[in-house]
Nucleic acid binder design. Structure first.
Length: 138
DNA sequence: TTCGGTTCTCGTCATGTAGT
DNA sequence: ACTACATGACGAGAACCGAA
């Protein structure tokens, strides 16, 4: 992350006391870093007009020591976990929605089959009666 | 009214699977 | 091998309900 460039920050979805910095790296890929509240000053915060309300740009300053790099990678790891959590939350919602829908479908099918079963039972009954009368008269 | 038990809902983690 | 996604399992909190 030493080649970090500029990025967007949105505080809205973050745990209290942290902010996310999104970097655009040299190769154009997006990277994220969580920034504890106390460290926000280490970034040069700007707010270009092209970004949505509540989003600002940030440029990190001087991350050079091994310790800082370790902290940085720890932040990256935490951020990755956070992003996974977010995605998984959505996935779980979707999964449950599908499951509900599936169960509803099954219940509908059960109702239809029960009705068919009733009809068939009635049909069988009347056929039996018909058959009985016929054999009686023979 | 309130307390304890039960059910529902949601977020998270772990794990399996398919696609690249 | 790595990644993204789907889903089961689990725990926490909310909602509901009947008994005291």
């Amino acid at each position: 992350m030493t080649n970090a460039g500029q990025g967007a920050v949105t505080a809205a979805a973050m745990p209290a006391g942290t902010t996310i910095v999104q970097y655009t790296q040299g190769d154009g890929s997006q990277q994220f870093v969580t920034v504890p509240a106390g460290e926000v000053q280490a970034y040069q915060i700007r707010a270009p007009s092209s970004l949505p309300a509540g989003v600002v740009m940030a440029t990190p300053t001087g991350i050079t020591s091994p310790q800082q790099l370790a902290e940085e990678s720890a932040r990256k790891r935490e951020l990755r976990l956070m992003k996974n959590r977010y995605k998984n939350r959505e996935a779980a919602r979707e999964c449950r929605r599908r499951k509900k829908e599936y169960v509803k479908c099954l219940e509908t099918r059960v109702a239809v089959l029960e009705q068919q079963n009733k009809t068939l039972i009635e049909e069988l009954k009347s056929l039996k009666e018909l058959y009985c009368h016929k054999t009686e008269t023979e």
